[in-house]
């Protein structure tokens, strides 16, 4: 995912902003391939897997490797 996506993404639960943690970028440095999006309000953590953020509410994420 591109960092520009972060401008409009929010926590699916309380709609507050997300903060990017532990980001790893591709070789060109413009694509985030892995990391964690953390809600600045409730602290819920959402994984970025293969460059795709998984923003399913935590109770629907079962079976998905975090």
């Amino acid at each position: 995912m591109k960092e520009s996506l972060l401008e409009i993404l929010c926590c699916p639960l309380d709609k507050h902003d997300l903060e990017l943690e532990d980001a790893e970028y591709d070789d060109d440095g413009d694509e985030i391939v892995s990391g964690t999006l953390v809600c600045t309000e409730c602290g819920e953590r959402y994984p970025i897997e293969d460059g795709i953020p998984n923003l399913l509410p935590p109770d629907m994420r079962e079976g998905t490797p975090a």
């Binding site: 993404l9 929010c10 699916p12 953020p53 998984n54 923003l55 399913l56 629907m60």
Partner: peptide
């Protein structure tokens, strides 16, 4: 073009 895993009832996009 980008993709997001998410649920229709809890859209992870700002107002």
């Amino acid at each position: 073009v980008g993709y997001v895993v998410g649920d229709f009832d809890s859209l992870p996009f700002a107002d």
